[in-house]
Design a protein around this nucleic acid. Structure first.
Lengths: 112, 112
DNA sequence: ACGGGACACCTTGATTTTCTGGGTATCCAG
DNA sequence: CTGGATACCCAGAAAATCAAGGTGTCCCGT
């Protein structure tokens, strides 16, 4: 009895890039990052908080994000993440990889 | 000391579709499937045997592939996999998912 | 006044997939 | 006769995501 494969099984390895990209527009807090990705993706992606927060810690630990406590637009305590210089490099790198990868997969998958 | 993120970290959840697609051209044995994917992808993907064979068992167990021992083009014992009717449905389904997913990710990632 | 929902954070354990690094055996070329 | 290609397989580790829970605040509708 296991869940049918969902679109999110494909998220593996892509979430980091999505988060970095989102934060590249300026500092955001976790909740806002999730909402922004989902909206931009047209609700085709679901960002689970159980995936997001570990990802944020990971990215910060690797020096790609830097966090700071602050106050959200609605006046609540929230931790804001901003992209570091290294994070910007990493984003560039991952974007290239993503393009290469999808091109390769498409060559195999799409010729009907 | 861990390997830097490679293109293969993105493979997650995609290998199944690649295999199904490859076999959709006609029965193939495991080794040939790996070579075909790599060539078609222009060597941008590396199909590790330690990933491939478990994937083949998985797909057969789920009823999407059917296997039969035979003899390869070079006269060696080889196990040939062919796509079942259910497998063909699954391939169609996964292809749609893949398109949706990449479109969604691109919307987030690509606006420079 | 109270309930529900949105906001915003976090943790634990299970699940799944892939990778690493082995191993077997045959055949052919140099 | 040694190495490389063909062709299969397995065990254990690593990594990421998911499911499902939890905390607390604030606001809106009734």
């Amino acid at each position: 009895m296991k869940a049918p494969k969902s679109a999110n099984d494909l998220l593996h390895g892509t979430l980091d890039a999505l988060v970095l990209k989102t934060v590249s527009w300026g500092p955001r807090h976790g909740y806002a990052i999730a909402r922004w990705i989902e909206q931009t993706a047209g609700d085709a992606l679901a960002i689970e908080e159980g995936s997001l927060y570990p990802a944020l810690y990971r990215l910060e630990r690797r020096g790609w994000l830097q966090s700071e406590w602050g106050v959200s637009e609605l006046g609540r305590r929230a931790k804001f993440y901003k992209l570091t210089r290294a994070g910007r490099e990493q984003l560039k790198h991952e974007t290239v990889q993503w393009s290469r990868f999808t091109a390769a997969v498409s060559r195999v998958l799409l010729p009907s």
